[in-house]
Design a protein around this nucleic acid. Structure first.
Lengths: 129, 129, 129, 129
DNA sequence: GTGGTCTAGACCACG
DNA sequence: GTGGTCTAGACCACC
């Protein structure tokens, strides 16, 4: 599990972390039952405040993504893959639709939109042989 | 010019308004020299605080999109179409790329991504005869 | 709306506040659309840290109880009465059942249990004329 | 003596164990002089950390419920039934009152409260011939 | 004025 | 060691 955050982005650090964990669970890189890094450990790795990581774990627990056992750590919850896939896919699709709508409103040619998407998808083509 | 804002969205009201004006200028729905609604008039129409609209006009003037003549209103500046197209297209493409990257990270199939874009683009096909 | 917290209790201050707000919404003392005290104002009233109140509002927003508009305050969300009634009633009934089960396990006479409940219910009888 | 713990509950494992022992003593299922399972044996049975069980026995000894004889185990202390009944009954009644008060605050009908208690008490009616 | 976020550091209970 | 909570105080953006 590699996490990378960028404090300069508009989206809060905590949401960046949470989103990447959701993606990893949706994608299967994090499996049910697996243990996550400790709050303090991850905070040290990412150079953020432990409270920030604690907030992430707390939020993800409310969403049913994590199961946190005080004293022993945070774990990927059963059934979380489904939850994360649903939520993440919906969020991504909504973002895609919003961007496309905006492009149309701004007068971007449909081909230009599709080309941008295709170019961005290109490097990942090898993932589906 | 029809503006529609949604106070519930995460993006600030002021940015929603500014973006739609930029899009309209980029797309040609608002032409150079054209006069914009008054601050107070637009604020009343959109049911937002006049300060919010004033901020939008101020920001857009800094970007070179508007030219405000104290006492007589705000007008679309010369050369603003170019500015808006550049900025809007870049923003839209960045949003598209970000959304695609996230979809890939979450394990969304590339076809699913392209299908979502195509579906969203479908209703607008008539615009490119 | 009168809120009373007790820092000595085992249940966290933030949960005490959240629970009382949920109860008030469930009971109708707080109606949809009504504005809640500001984070800083309520914190001052209750002699707690503003962050504690902010956490409460944030949690309640995730539950769909509140709708918070940055810059203008927190409001009771539409449909929240239903949510709160469901959740609060379920929580209360679970607590009742747990307490009864424990009483039975400890050898408390059933009549003694019912008497305790009835005595506690007595002072509130006037609420249902 | 059957003990059942649930690590997912909010109440600490150690308190779950201690409470059940107190209830058993209060109810007479554990009589004065009787020997309790060894720390390590009980820990193995319940799949918990031996430190947790050791803490329970230590706490219960302070309360006067147990008497531990180093080298030979832990025994139910003389006069412990009285102690446990007092303490357990008080705790149960307090929990009942708290739950009832909360139900009233949330707008639960008094009948609904009494019905919930009665339903929960029903299956145990046979215990009082 | 409003809420949102983050940092810093403390304390507690559990294992 | 673990997470949970609270306090304190800072900064930001929005209205």
């Amino acid at each position: 599990m590699r996490l990378a955050i960028d404090p300069r982005l508009a989206t809060p650090i905590s949401e960046q972390i949470a989103e990447q964990i959701r993606f990893a669970v949706a994608d299967g890189r994090l499996a049910a039952g697996e243990r996550l890094p400790s709050v303090r450990g991850l905070a040290k790795d990412l150079l953020v405040n432990p409270n920030t990581v604690a907030k992430v774990y707390r939020d993800l627990e409310r969403e049913g993504v994590l199961r946190t056992k005080p004293g022993s750590g945070a774990f990927v919850a059963d059934g979380s893959a489904e939850i994360c896939r649903e939520r993440s896919f919906a969020a991504v699709k909504a973002a895609l639709r919003l961007a496309v709508e905006k492009g149309v409103a701004a007068g971007l040619e449909p081909q230009e939109i599709e080309r941008t998407v295709a170019e961005c998808l290109g490097p990942h083509a090898a993932r589906v042989p």
